[in-house]
Amino acid sequence: MPTRSSLAQFMGLLGWLAVVFVAAAAGAVASMDSSTFYAQLVRPAWAPPASAFGPVWSVLYLLMGVAAWLVWRAHERGPRRAALALFLVQLAANALWTWLFFAWRLGALAFAEVLVLWVLIAITAALFWRVRRVAAVLLLPYLAWVTLACALTGSVWRNNPGLL
């Protein structure tokens, strides 16, 4: 595979960042009134404050975009394509969770979906590892945060039967 120019590399980075931030925007639309709803919920003592979610997700989306770009840049065409295809699937699942939980208030479905999301992220990280190890490492904070999200979604769903 021929080496891409610096401009192509930069445009590729911008493209992957755009992809992840479009997914973030799709989720943000669903969570426009999330702070009011989140404040009404019975949450465990270990739940992060509502103000933590925006900054954390911004950093995670940035890391995801860079990770995808690193895989995109790799020379291994076969593994790269599969890894990036699964990356896009998990990104769509990520956006879907926000709609299930905040917009549609389907707690059981949101909990099941976040578990599926966790598996998709883990497999994506494993595929990224085969292509560019640093890209897989960049997904680890995302996997850790979604691990917390799994526990939090399950807890909040069980503790708020009238709202979710």
Score class of each variant (00 low, 15 high):
58 S>I: 01
79 P>C: 01
43 R>D: 07
38 Y>P: 05
27 G>L: 05
51 S>M: 07
59 V>D: 03
77 R>D: 15
75 H>V: 04
62 L>Q: 03
80 R>W: 13
70 L>A: 07
44 P>I: 03
37 F>M: 04
71 V>C: 07
55 P>K: 15
81 R>N: 12
46 W>E: 11
43 R>I: 00
48 P>T: 05
35 S>C: 00
53 F>H: 07
56 V>C: 08
70 L>H: 05
68 A>K: 03
74 A>F: 08
39 A>Q: 10
79 P>L: 06
46 W>I: 02
62 L>I: 03
49 P>C: 03
66 V>M: 06
43 R>C: 04
61 Y>W: 11
30 A>P: 00
69 W>I: 00
53 F>I: 07
30 A>S: 15
68 A>R: 06
47 A>C: 02
65 G>V: 00
46 W>N: 08
28 A>Y: 08
38 Y>A: 06
34 S>N: 09
66 V>F: 02
38 Y>I: 03
58 S>T: 14
50 A>H: 13
51 S>D: 12
59 V>W: 07
31 S>A: 15
80 R>Q: 10
36 T>N: 06
78 G>M: 01
53 F>D: 10
36 T>V: 14
54 G>T: 12
44 P>K: 14
47 A>E: 10
27 G>A: 09
75 H>Q: 11
57 W>C: 02
66 V>N: 02
37 F>N: 00
36 T>A: 11
44 P>Y: 13
48 P>S: 08
28 A>L: 01
27 G>R: 08
67 A>Y: 04
46 W>T: 05
36 T>H: 11
44 P>C: 13
61 Y>I: 01
71 V>E: 00
26 A>R: 05
34 S>T: 01
36 T>Q: 12
79 P>R: 14
62 L>H: 05
45 A>F: 07
69 W>H: 12
65 G>K: 09
32 M>N: 05
76 E>Q: 14
37 F>D: 00
48 P>K: 12
64 M>K: 03
77 R>A: 12
50 A>V: 06
68 A>G: 10
49 P>I: 07
37 F>V: 00
44 P>E: 13
28 A>G: 15
61 Y>P: 00
26 A>N: 10
58 S>V: 00
80 R>H: 11
77 R>F: 11
58 S>C: 02
26 A>K: 01
54 G>H: 09
69 W>P: 02
41 L>M: 13
33 D>H: 13
54 G>Y: 04
59 V>G: 10
